[in-house]
Simulated assay, not measured.
Amino acid sequence: MWHESSLFTRAVRRRRDPVAVQALRSTAAAVISYVIALRLSSEPAPLTAPLTALLVVQVTLYSTLTTGIRRVNSVVAGVLIAIGFSALVGLTWWSLGLIILASLIVGHLVRVDEFVPEVAISAMLVLGVTRVADTAWDRVLETLIGAAVGLLTNLLFAPPVWVGPAGEAITDLAGRMRTLLRHMGEHPAGPNGVEDAVARLHEARRLDNDIAHVDGALRQAEDSLRLNPRVREGLLFRLVLRTGLDTLEICAVVLRVACRTLTDLAKIRDEDPLFPPPLSHALREVFDHLAVAVDSFAGLITAQVSANAEEAEARLARELATARSSRDRLAGLLLEQVRAHPAQWQLHGALLADIDRVLDELGVEKRSERLMEELDRHSRARRERHPRMARLRGPLTPS
Results as ranks from 00 to 15, higher is better:
residue 200 R to L: 09
residue 382 R to N: 12
residue 87 A to I: 05
residue 176 R to P: 00
residue 319 E to W: 10
residue 362 L to I: 00
residue 176 R to Y: 05
residue 290 L to K: 06
residue 101 L to K: 10
residue 18 P to V: 03
residue 379 S to P: 09
residue 330 L to I: 02
residue 206 R to Y: 03
residue 375 L to F: 11
residue 214 V to M: 05
residue 271 E to R: 05
residue 56 V to H: 00
residue 226 R to D: 04
residue 286 V to T: 03
residue 232 R to E: 12
residue 331 A to V: 09
residue 365 E to V: 08
residue 384 E to K: 14
residue 51 L to T: 12
residue 232 R to S: 10
residue 213 H to N: 13
residue 254 V to P: 00
residue 377 R to N: 12
residue 159 P to G: 03
residue 344 Q to D: 15
residue 377 R to C: 07
residue 244 G to N: 01
residue 149 V to W: 06
residue 124 M to V: 15
residue 264 D to F: 07
residue 84 G to S: 09
residue 387 P to C: 05
residue 275 F to T: 00
residue 263 T to K: 02
residue 83 I to A: 08
residue 274 L to E: 09
residue 399 S to G: 14
residue 296 S to G: 11
residue 128 G to Q: 12
residue 4 E to F: 13
residue 270 D to L: 14
residue 320 L to R: 10
residue 131 R to E: 09
residue 48 T to Q: 14
residue 320 L to H: 03
residue 113 D to T: 06
residue 31 V to F: 04
residue 48 T to L: 12
residue 1 M to N: 10
residue 358 V to A: 03
residue 48 T to V: 14
residue 275 F to A: 01
residue 167 G to A: 05
residue 346 Q to K: 02
residue 166 A to I: 03
residue 43 E to C: 03
residue 103 S to M: 02
residue 376 D to E: 08
residue 14 R to M: 09
residue 316 L to Y: 07
residue 162 W to L: 15
residue 337 Q to G: 02
residue 38 L to Q: 03
residue 144 L to S: 09
residue 131 R to S: 13
residue 49 A to D: 04
residue 3 H to R: 15
residue 107 G to P: 13
residue 272 D to L: 11
residue 154 N to H: 07
residue 305 V to K: 14
residue 376 D to K: 13
residue 41 S to A: 01
residue 44 P to C: 03
residue 14 R to W: 14
residue 396 L to K: 12
residue 276 P to N: 06
residue 150 G to C: 02
residue 16 R to H: 09
residue 369 E to H: 07
residue 159 P to F: 11
